[in-house]
Design a protein around this nucleic acid. Sequence first.
DNA 1: CGCCCTTTTGAACACCGTCAATCTCCGTGG
DNA 2: CCACGGAGATTGACGGTGTTCAAAAGGGCG
Lengths: 226, 226
Amino acid sequence: MYVTNPNEFYEAAAHNKFAVSSFQGGDAEKKREIATGKCLFREGDDANSVFEVKTGVLRLTRVLENGRRQVIAFGLPGDIIGFSSLGYHMSECDAIASAEVVEHSVDPKKAGGVDPELRDRLYQAALREISAMQDHFMMLGRKSAREKIASFLMVLSDRLGEELGAYTHVKLPMTRSDIADFLGLTTETVSRTFSQLRAEKVIALEGNKALIVLNADQLLDYAECD
Amino acid sequence: MYVTNPNEFYEAAAHNKFAVSSFQGGDAEKKREIATGKCLFREGDDANSVFEVKTGVLRLTRVLENGRRQVIAFGLPGDIIGFSSLGYHMSECDAIASAEVVEHSVDPKKAGGVDPELRDRLYQAALREISAMQDHFMMLGRKSAREKIASFLMVLSDRLGEELGAYTHVKLPMTRSDIADFLGLTTETVSRTFSQLRAEKVIALEGNKALIVLNADQLLDYAECD
DNA sequence: CGCCCTTTTGAACACCGTCAATCTCCGTGG
DNA sequence: CCACGGAGATTGACGGTGTTCAAAAGGGCG
């Protein structure tokens, strides 16, 4: 599942369980390491594989020719990334934190088709992604900047956060610009909203690559999830 | 494929071909008719089936408790709707134009699992939907009101349009409010944008439920697709 | 330490949302 | 057939949220 909103925590949990139990053994899979900043695939590349994120963070991006960018998803450990319907990728995937992935070949031409069990697992993963993307629609179309940021931080806190007494420490592997392009905002608005939340003592910033959630209740309130 | 943007026309074509050739025969499927305004499933309903739209138009909606609504997709002939990962639906599906659908059972408990061939076809359909949703992200997050409307009309024109000399006649089964909730706008903005396009002679309105595309080139320009 | 990229902050503006009034369409019933 | 009524659509005025443009501050790495 991709990063979406807090009302899907249970899904994230289910997904992680799934990720642990699946894709062991078999010979059409291959482990790969992608260093920070490196590209896993680009728009137009053949899409013969999907990638299961084991560690690190990937970023899936689509760009319009006029420069406008949309971050489709962040691939965190447990996510599967690289689904494509036409045999080639419509987006670009880069590592924003050094990542280990397992590559699963889904090339239909190879070895008389794909392992049925793998296909079945991939189908389930695709369904989870559809569900996550539907949530993100609500995020992009119907939430204010503050609600978007709050929702985003809640999910990040849940998936990447570490307990720190009553608070939660959250690493931010992505830049403000990445967050902006994920939420349909500008870097300035992201920055301003962070500053507001800090002024309200809901979060504390720790450099540019980490923060602490001081008041998760308030953050959840702001997220306005159903 | 769902209604997204013009740069996926070839996909729509491929999809329709697919829809014609698939899902013939078998016994886990059932034809159903849904009258205008009737509901196919609601949030929370068990999701044991997916639905292939044969005729008419469906609308897939998700709602926040504060009343904000997001139309996830319009289901046009050839689309498959009702994918769900958790065994129950997270959204509501209504017919906005009297529809015939074929229901395909995907209940894993029934008859020792789902027909492998059907599962394979559904996987392909799910991949197409993911691709379409990724396009829609760009729409919701990074396009202006005019670009959204233009993109939307281009797709509708392609999928529902009828040749009318040099122009294209397009039926609009959905209300302004449906369009607004699909594009992340308000009804007022949708209406205003239609009026602007009419003033520029790009389109002509024909009552509330139809329009004519007078200048498809201009419309495509406005859509700002890559 | 110094450079450069990212982030933050400020100010002015624009687009779109909100609120409200009017109009159109279309189905219903007289 | 026309009048009526109501839901949906249009239009206008105004305000707010977020963008744009610009400049300063911060952080990371040589």
